[in-house]
């Protein structure tokens, strides 16, 4: 792992106490100034991966390694986690309405995070809060800090959320579906904001179900299916030449915005498997158009140029 690598997850597996497997081999890496899109459908484990990096999953058994700046996060104690969260790794959530405490003013909630990690007076913390809100494009930031979450529009709430996440200048920002609850025109504004963030040298991990969002805001992408990273690589490479049948099917299933309109969208038949009914071999095999007998054994990770793919089609 080179010096620039911020986060590397190696073969992370998570299971519930009752034995149900949630993540079944997630490997990712993220360098400074990069933005990694973690794409998958609901139940693929993309949010779980993020929560693991934040240490916010209490009752799971985990194996593998989550390394952040050469520290293994899974090995650290509760105090170390607390110092890390909000300071070195910060997170923003899908619904800024419920993510903020509804009964306290937005500014006070941002001040709280600053003062949790730095010895600052209330006044100094508030000055930073107002500055951050302003930088996030919140009009009249001092007044906005005095509002309650429900008094702000959805877009402003998410900007305030991002301001809070950035308040202690974290090295890594995790955004879990940050634009899903927003209208498209507001989503575009937030994506611009997130893209600008990368220029500060921080790393961004963007959890999303939307390939378009990944294309816009990320440099790298990892495609998750049923708790397994099936393909990862630079965004351009993966979007231009997807290797895994699932990645291809996912891209093909998106209705096009221009060009001819297909009479039928190439949908993927069936449903993703439930966590307790995952196939032992390739997790995508039951829905895969190119399934073969050797898919019954979990395929190895194959390196193809800049991309990595987990599929028998590329195993030599």
């Amino acid at each position: 792992m080179d010096a620039e690598t911020l986060l590397s997850i190696e073969d992370l597996r998570l299971a519930l106490p009752d034995g149900r497997v949630l993540l079944d081999g997630v490997s990712l890496s993220l360098a400074r100034g990069e933005a990694l899109g973690v794409v998958g459908e609901s139940g693929s484990g993309k949010s779980l991966t993020a929560m693991t990096v934040m240490g916010l999953l209490p009752d799971v058994r985990s194996s593998g390694a989550v390394r952040f700046r050469a520290r293994d996060l899974l090995m650290q104690d509760a105090r170390a986690w607390r110092r890390l969260r909000g300071k070195e790794i910060a997170m923003i959530f899908q619904d800024p309405m419920t993510a903020f405490l509804p009964v306290r003013r937005v500014g006070a909630q941002i001040d709280e995070q600053i003062r949790l990690h730095e010895k600052l007076s209330r006044r100094e913390a508030r000055a930073r809060t107002v500055r951050l809100l302003g930088e996030m494009g919140v009009p009249d930031p001092a007044a906005a800090a005095e509002r309650f979450p429900h008094q702000l529009s959805g877009g402003l709430r998410q900007r305030a959320m991002i301001a809070m996440a950035l308040s202690c200048a974290p090295a890594l920002l995790i955004a879990d579906e940050p634009t899903t609850a927003l209208d498209v025109t507001v989503q575009a504004q937030i994506l611009v904001l997130l893209t600008r963030l990368r220029e500060t040298g921080a790393g961004l991990m963007l959890i999303t179900h939307d390939m378009g969002v990944v294309a816009q805001a990320c440099t790298h992408v990892a495609v998750l299916y049923a708790g397994v990273v099936v393909e990862r690589g630079p965004v351009r490479a993966v979007l231009d030449a997807p290797l895994h049948p699932y990645t291809r099917a996912l891209l093909a299933a998106m209705p096009p915005l221009d060009g001819p309109r297909p009479a039928h969208l190439p949908a993927i038949a069936g449903q993703p498997p439930a966590p307790d009914a995952r196939p032992p071999g390739c997790v995508f095999a039951p829905r895969c158009p190119q399934v073969r007998p050797d898919c019954a054994i979990r395929p190895p990770v194959v390196r193809m140029g800049e991309q990595e793919v987990v599929c028998v089609l590329y195993a030599s």
């Binding site: 959805g154 402003l156 025109t185 504004q189 390939m211 979007l239």
Partner: peptide, 18 residues
């Protein structure tokens, strides 16, 4: 239409406000 994030072009400057 411009605000839809797509693979084939960068996002044009978004509308301001809400």
């Amino acid at each position: 239409l411009d605000a839809v994030p797509r693979a084939d072009r960068p996002l044009p400057p978004p509308l301001s406000g809400e």
